[in-house]
Design a protein around this nucleic acid. Structure first.
Length: 226
DNA sequence: CCCTGATTCGC
DNA sequence: GCGAATCAGG
């Protein structure tokens, strides 16, 4: 897969929306988490709370995979060039401005900055965009209003189709179409799509036709032959 | 173990 | 430019 404009837009939208690189990667499909992160950085999208970047210790971690003699000496760069926008731009509420209501423009608030442009990501990774954002119109009529995702009480806490990953047991519980249909959700038996228990049900030795139940094993205590 | 993002560097 | 490999923190 390559980074088409469309995919880049999706990446940006999802990244800014706060989805993790992994989530973005499998929404986009065909790319790895690393690819997403790499691309995000290349695009200049920047550093959202990283678990590992918290401290500001200027110590040389000396990570550098493989051989890196780094023959270069100290590069004298005492002049920190003042770029215009180094600051992490996370929405900075003017004061105690709560309730991001739909039709609640703060009449008194100074226009501040132009809103970054709002793109939301729908199920499957498609983008909901403002009318003027892109020339490509969305073929199916866009939803008239955004309804808060409602998981439905029956399935709350259950493993849904959207929750499945390579390491989650995909054994169906109930039947598709039923309101509480979900998946097992246990950790898989490595190498299989199901957990250990359900592997046991999914993969059973095929007995020759006509054979009756295999005799129960006699782990011990069988008739002593001597 | 799992996850996360950051960084490096060969391609 | 791309992304696997690696690092490092949670």
């Amino acid at each position: 897969m390559s980074w088409t404009d469309e995919r880049i837009d999706q990446l940006k939208a999802m990244w800014e929306k706060g989805l993790t690189a992994s989530q973005i990667a499998d929404e986009l499909g065909g790319v790895s988490r690393n690819a997403v992160i790499g691309k995000a950085h290349r695009l200049g999208l920047q550093s959202r709370p990283s678990p590992v970047k918290a401290n500001e210790a200027p110590k040389k971690a000396a990570p550098v995979r493989k051989a890196t003699p780094s023959p270069e000496a100290e590069a004298p760069k005492p002049a920190p060039v003042q770029h215009s926008a180094p600051a992490p731009v996370r929405a900075a509420p003017p004061a105690a401005a709560p309730a991001p209501s739909f039709a609640a423009p703060a009449a008194d608030a100074p226009p501040a900055a132009p809103q970054p442009r709002i793109i939301s990501v729908g199920p499957g990774g498609f983008l909901r965009q403002g009318p003027g954002d892109q020339q490509a119109p969305i073929p199916p009529a866009p939803p008239r209003r955004l309804v808060p995702a409602k998981p439905s009480p029956e399935i709350a806490g259950k493993t849904t189709l959207l929750d499945l990953t390579e390491r989650i047991c995909k054994w169906p519980m109930g039947h598709p179409g039923e309101p509480d249909f979900h998946f097992c959700g246990e950790a898989v038996n490595p190498g299989f799509p199901y957990c250990v228990e359900h592997c046991g049900r999914a993969y059973q030795a095929q007995l020759p036709r006509g054979t009756r139940r295999p005799p129960p094993p006699l782990p011990f205590g069988g008739p002593r032959v001597r």
